[in-house]
Write a protein that binds this DNA or RNA. Structure first.
Lengths: 218, 218
DNA sequence: GGCTGTGAAAAAGTTCACAGCT
DNA sequence: AGCTGTGAACTTTTTCACAGCC
């Protein structure tokens, strides 16, 4: 338990959390690695290995207590505290994010919506008033350790990112289709719509190739 | 070149493509692995290794021709053809996706927008008229090898997914916060907004821990 | 001299096989 | 008997070191 949780495991824990919540809502309070794995598209052994990095929270011969395991994963992920989120860019995507229920229910609290468009300032989106981007530095100062979510146009993304970093933010989730440059101490993750499509295209293409050539039985 | 391109490499090629396009727009037509790597947040050796799976498209002592490399990566990814895309669910997120320029410019063509909400049918979003979900099967039949993008509510995601699969789609990009069950031959990728946030929270939490305890020098 | 291409080594991640507990 | 937990084997991915070509 002591050492470090592998990066690959970290990326899967939220998926387990989601499946556990669903089970809990259905009144299930005990689950085997086999059942939990099948609802998260991983193999049971991988699931058990992942969970073993957190500790021994299952019961041999029985399974895992759904709520207890949920709590343990949440704790390991740092989700027992509430993380302030500042959402920048209130276009269609920003509005979708502002209204996304998955944030508040998972330890994230939107603290401010910021946009540069004066016609949007003061309008209410997802229960929050939109404020002007000029307030960025103040908002970040008021919310220590906040996470910045960037849903801004590609051409201003790096500039906004720089401001966010200078204001002291060390965790950024970027939706703009750009590779942002940040200092090493800043954690940056990106969600890229077209990249995922391109990866699908590759596999779709490969399917056609496989049906017309002899190669690649896998 | 012949064998298979590693999965990890496939996931990075679209990032290289994006950086190459940017360079091309700026009039740069020759680039070293060092420069290209720095604008994609990978190390030069990894970039060269990735490219080496496609073939030997660089020139030693010189670098890579931007347009030529762009073409070769596009070809390897199957992006020289146009992929039809059917977008299902025209809420805020669906509208953001429908208006996202990154699709058309990268070999993807939206063929239909579908939604269940009758008040939306006929409205035009991103240049496409919204059609009723009942047309799903017809639309899929008319667009062979199309990619389905699901931006539907969580509670109907699996049902829509099943319909899409039954209609013959073998590539799905899911934005709903659910783990979908699909047959093995169907490629499924997901984009999950809250999972990315949770991963950030983990690293943000770890930062605070590291400054207050002795553990984990890495 | 400079930069690519690539085997070989190292590291990370996954799967296996079974010990260990209830 | 049943299901977890985990060292060990295996596979994939990354990094290194340097040969090869312009």
């Amino acid at each position: 338990m002591a050492k470090g949780i592998p990066i690959a495991t970290i990326a899967r824990l939220p998926v387990y959390l989601r499946a556990l919540r669903l089970l809990s809502e259905r009144g299930v309070n005990l689950v085997s690695s086999e059942v939990l794995a099948s609802s998260t598209a991983v193999r049971p052994t991988k699931l058990r290995k992942d969970l073993s990095y957190l500790g021994s929270y299952g019961v041999r011969g029985v399974g895992y207590d759904v709520d207890y395991l949920t709590h343990q994963i949440s704790r390991a992920m740092g989700l027992t505290q509430n993380w302030p989120v500042v959402l920048i860019g209130i276009g269609n995507l920003g509005q979708a994010l502002a209204g996304y229920g998955g944030f508040s229910s998972r330890g994230f609290q939107i603290k401010a919506l910021l946009d540069a468009d004066h016609t949007k300032i003061g309008t209410v989106v997802g229960g929050h008033a939109v404020r002007h981007i000029s307030e960025l530095e103040r908002v970040v100062a008021e919310n220590s350790n906040c996470i910045a979510v960037l849903a801004v146009p590609e051409d201003v993304a790096q500039a906004i990112c720089d401001r966010v970093v200078n204001a002291g933010v060390t965790s950024i989730l970027n939706f703009a289709p750009t590779v942002l440059q940040v200092p090493a101490q800043v954690q940056l993750r990106k969600v890229d719509l077209s990249i995922e499509l391109q990866i699908l295209a590759f596999y779709e293409q490969r399917k056609s190739i496989n049906t017309t050539t002899l190669s690649n039985p896998a």
